[in-house]
Write a protein that binds this DNA or RNA. Structure first.
Lengths: 353, 353
DNA sequence: ATTCGTTTTAATAAACGCTTTCATTCAGAA
DNA sequence: TTCTGAATGAAAGCGTTTATTAAAACGAAT
């Protein structure tokens, strides 16, 4: 009479002739396992294999208070900026046998709160928040700080010692971009800056200004425009298009344009094309981020590459380290990592004749 | 003396003056709750709120054998085709308070198996597999069939009665595409078909052939090329580029080109541009899928839109229905849904002069 | 040979926090 | 007096992990 139901540790105990205590110790390779003679281990393992034993994770978690799960919150999944970061996170978690629970906040505060609650209820052992295109909302941070598990924010610079962060070095990135244009001989450069509410805007502009100051490059206010606030990142395409049209209308000639991000740059290119201006023949364009579409755009977009996959990986690894720290009762403080971007030269920029 | 540790159901019981049985019944609104007078309910709820009681889901799951979790497996997360589908899935799950565990198989068999095991160990209540760009691997299906939970495959036509499926009507989509080109007056149309190993290829080609037959459109074999097999979807850009170069080299004139998917179309446009051919002035190009980049491409790409978000939503809803079916011990058989694509006309196609 | 401390080896039993079966009480109806 | 239904509680698990305990085994010391 074969017991048809699911195999428990007791079945393995019975089959192997040991108690469930011993089985547990052996199968988990717990500290006490060093007292268990190899012969016993063999027998237990064989029994477990024979029966196809799979521990019930609910029971395990209930007892051990661990979920082996990490909560991942994305503010807008449709942002092309997300995918590679998610891949980086996923890959690192996989190495350590953690599983991600993915939530998409849709940029809605209510959703954020509900999801945060759900994740904490499930005892995720850490939290990774992908704060792309996040309209400033200081409460979010406050909510996160309450949660007493290792928490990581990607894409938002923080000063707290409770929540860690990984960001790209925006200032450096922006400097690389202008520098590239400058070295190609461009002096009349138009800028589409980010929306005022977006945290990335300030450091990027700072990078541009400091470069301009150090080289004497003139920043003509009539060639500077700002993206409007908006909920979703895709809309920056439209905005880039409109703003570029406006720049053209102003009749202040420019030979290069630096956009706040790639999608904005795509909008700009469209507007330029509409106005009969070819890229890069009549105007060079540079973006920021290096989303996947850049390399297959026509022309391929020169841009500043954020090391997105690496950022995701670093975030996940730091958070795992945090988990281990908590387990070993080490006092862990937040880490703030700023990662270097790099210039990806493609065909949307060229030197002045 | 405040008990500082975590609040359990017993604490609520004590606080409210009832037993944990009653508390459980009330808080879960179990069937027996109809015998509990409103006054009692009030008191229990008040106590729970006061203490900030959050049920321990491990314990709950252990007892009730439910995880309120759905496993989502993506074969390649970096495929731009994924994002909207994921959003659709996420949104439907959210409505029903399920949480997705996302795994990215990286198109590797080993990873697939490992992840499947991990998900089943966690007792996900259903499985959604996003089989985008999946090189044919019949075993995958076999593995899935073993898993006795509602399982859904998106993007792969199936005939089994154990695994459900949601796909776009590829034949119809392809027909819409040629029809569009045909109506614009194109007769010399080049085709880049999908790789032989990809399931979508056959029905799409079938759609083209049946349209051709019904209208007398000639399909010139010298204008037909095939994408090579490849592991990752992004590489079809390169392939589209190369194949289009080759088509041009053959000197068989064509006025329109239909690509297997959008990314291939982007490659084709690049090749045409390189050869001095403007799109759509010299050659119309149409894609398939309608990934996000289409609308901000220059020119915006005319394509066949897969209702991706809807497909994700349908998949999730069907799977939830499956879960409910299992709970109610109804006999549930697999569902196969074929969804209608639609033509998205943009600027990469135009009528012959 | 006996005692005594250690070290191995293993089992008993107590949680973990919940759901749920079963039992019980108390009114009022039959 | 028995029965029915409303209202609640006691206690049994769910399948693990983990003290705690216990029995051997082994030397060394008495």
């Amino acid at each position: 009479m074969v017991k048809t139901s699911v195999i428990t540790i007791r079945d393995v105990a019975k089959e192997s002739g040991f108690s469930s205590t011993t089985v547990s110790i052996v199968l988990n390779n717990a500290p006490l396992a060093r007292y268990i003679p190899p012969a016993t281990k063999k027998r237990i393992e064989k029994a477990a294999n024979k029966l196809g034993y799979r521990p019930n994770l609910f029971a395990r978690s209930l007892r051990s208070k661990r979920s082996h799960t990490v909560g991942v919150m994305v503010f807008d999944m449709t942002d092309p900026y997300c995918t590679l970061i998610l891949r980086g996170i996923e890959n690192s978690l996989y190495q350590s046998s953690y599983l991600p629970i993915l939530t998409d906040v849709h940029n809605e505060r209510g959703r954020f709160e509900r999801y945060l609650e759900m994740l904490l209820d499930r005892r995720v052992e850490a939290l990774i928040v992908l704060a792309n295109w996040l309209f400033v909302d200081i409460d979010v941070l406050a909510d996160l700080e309450k949660s007493s598990i290792p928490t990581m924010m990607i894409g938002r610079e923080l000063r707290t010692d409770t929540v860690s962060s990984v960001i790209v070095d925006n200032e450096m990135g922006a400097r690389l971009a202008v520098e590239h244009l400058y070295q190609l001989g461009h002096r009349k450069i138009a800028f589409i800056r980010g929306p005022k509410t977006l945290a990335d805007r300030a450091p990027r502009w700072q990078g541009i200004r400091s470069f301009a100051k150090s080289t004497g490059l003139e920043l003509d206010p009539r060639l500077i425009v700002d993206l409007p606030e908006s909920q979703d990142p895709i809309s920056s395409f439209e905005a880039g298009y409109k703003l570029t049209e406006e720049l053209i209308k102003r009749k202040r000639p420019f030979t290069a344009l630096m956009a706040f991000d790639d999608v904005t740059a795509f909008g700009a290119i469209r507007a330029l094309a509409k106005a009969g201006l070819r890229v890069p023949e009549h105007c060079s364009v540079i973006g920021f981020d290096d989303v996947a579409a850049c390399s297959f755009y026509t022309p391929p977009l020169t841009t500043i590459r954020q090391p997105m996959e690496a950022m995701g990986a670093v975030a996940a690894n730091l958070v795992i380290e945090g988990i281990n720290g908590v387990l070993e009762k080490r006092e862990i403080s937040a880490v703030h990592r700023k990662m270097a971007p790099e210039l990806a030269v493609r065909e949307s920029t060229r030197s002045l004749p």
